[in-house]
Computed example of a mutant assay.
Amino acid sequence: MLCKQLVIITGPCWRCRKFMKLAVTHVVGTGDYNGPDEFSKEELNMARDHGVFIKKQYSQTSKEIYELLPIAFNQKQVVEASAVVAVLGDLENIRMAEKIYGQAVDAGFMPADTAKSMVEHYTGMYSSMPPEAIRQIAYTDGGLVSMQLMLVTRAKGYDTVPIGGYDKQKFMEAFRISERYIPIMLVAIGKAAKPGHPTVRLAVDDVAFFNEMPKE
């Protein structure tokens, strides 16, 4: 027998983006989530008893939020954040080389013949690279982009949460992402409701070495 749960979360209104209590029902063991429009009378009463204001225009929220919640293993940041950015790696990024170098020429940063030479060089190099090497480049670049996004966001006065733990295959399927791309990371963006918990990191001497690796 399927077990259904009533899940109450704090999330943004679909229209005004103000945070409020939202209720969904979840069939345990599946990715099925339903909003108040499909609640039974008992479920509506239970939601109201727990502080959820059930009114049609206040009960709607983006369908993608509920799709992403189980994919992200129910990490609450994906529904509490003002936005969630999915950073993807482009396995066919070499196709953009001509456009990128063309923009450099238009901006006066390099001569046209230099740009042409660079495009030919990288196109030839990528054509002979094994798929795993291209994939590794995409992961490296995607990590740098993610960190830069978080730093810029912080500089603008907002907070971020990097989310690397999620079902990447289900994410690709749910959001109909082409196999040209690989998922790198989710970055939740918004204003922190409370300060983050303190953390510790390894000392520099534990991770940085000069000229040679330490003996095990």
Rank of each mutant, 00 (worst) to 15 (best):
M1T: 03
M1W: 04
Q5W: 03
L6C: 01
C13E: 15
C13A: 15
C13F: 12
W14P: 05
W14C: 15
R15A: 05
C16Y: 07
K18E: 08
L22W: 00
A23G: 15
V24F: 06
T25M: 01
V28D: 10
T30W: 04
G31W: 01
G31Y: 08
G31H: 05
D32Y: 02
D32E: 13
Y33G: 12
D37W: 00
E38D: 14
F39R: 07
F39K: 10
S40E: 13
S40A: 01
E42Y: 05
E43C: 13
E43G: 13
E43D: 15
L44M: 09
L44K: 10
M46E: 15
M46A: 09
H50K: 15
G51K: 13
V52I: 15
I54N: 13
I54D: 12
Q60E: 13
S62T: 03
E64M: 04
Y66P: 03
E67C: 07
L68K: 07
L69W: 11
P70A: 12
A72C: 13
F73H: 07
N74A: 12
V78W: 06
E80Y: 14
A81T: 00
V84E: 11
V87A: 04
G89D: 07
G89F: 03
D90R: 06
L91G: 07
L91Q: 14
E92F: 03
I94E: 10
M96D: 11
E98W: 09
K99P: 03
I100G: 06
Y101I: 07
Y101T: 06
Y101F: 14
G102Q: 10
Q103T: 07
A104M: 10
D106E: 12
A107T: 08
M110K: 02
D113V: 09
D113Q: 09
T114N: 14
T114G: 06
A115T: 02
S117A: 13
S117L: 02
M118D: 04
M118I: 10
M118W: 05
V119N: 05
V119H: 03
E120F: 04
Y122V: 10
T123W: 05
M125D: 15
M125A: 11
Y126H: 06
S128L: 14
M129W: 13
E132A: 01
I134T: 10
I134H: 05
Q136H: 01
Q136W: 03
I137G: 14
Y139K: 09
D141G: 06
G142D: 08
G143Q: 07
V145W: 04
V145A: 14
M150H: 05
L151H: 00
L151V: 01
T153F: 02
R154E: 15
A155H: 04
A155I: 02
A155N: 11
G157W: 02
G157I: 02
D159T: 12
V161P: 04
V161R: 05
P162E: 09
I163H: 03
I163M: 11
K168D: 04
Q169M: 06
Q169E: 11
K170H: 09
K170P: 04
E173Q: 15
E173M: 10
E173I: 13
A174W: 06
A174T: 13
R176S: 09
S178C: 02
E179Q: 15
I182Q: 06
K191D: 08
K194M: 14
P195L: 14
P195D: 12
V200C: 00
R201W: 04
R201D: 06
R201I: 07
L202C: 05
V207I: 12
A208E: 11
F210D: 00
P214I: 13
K215E: 11
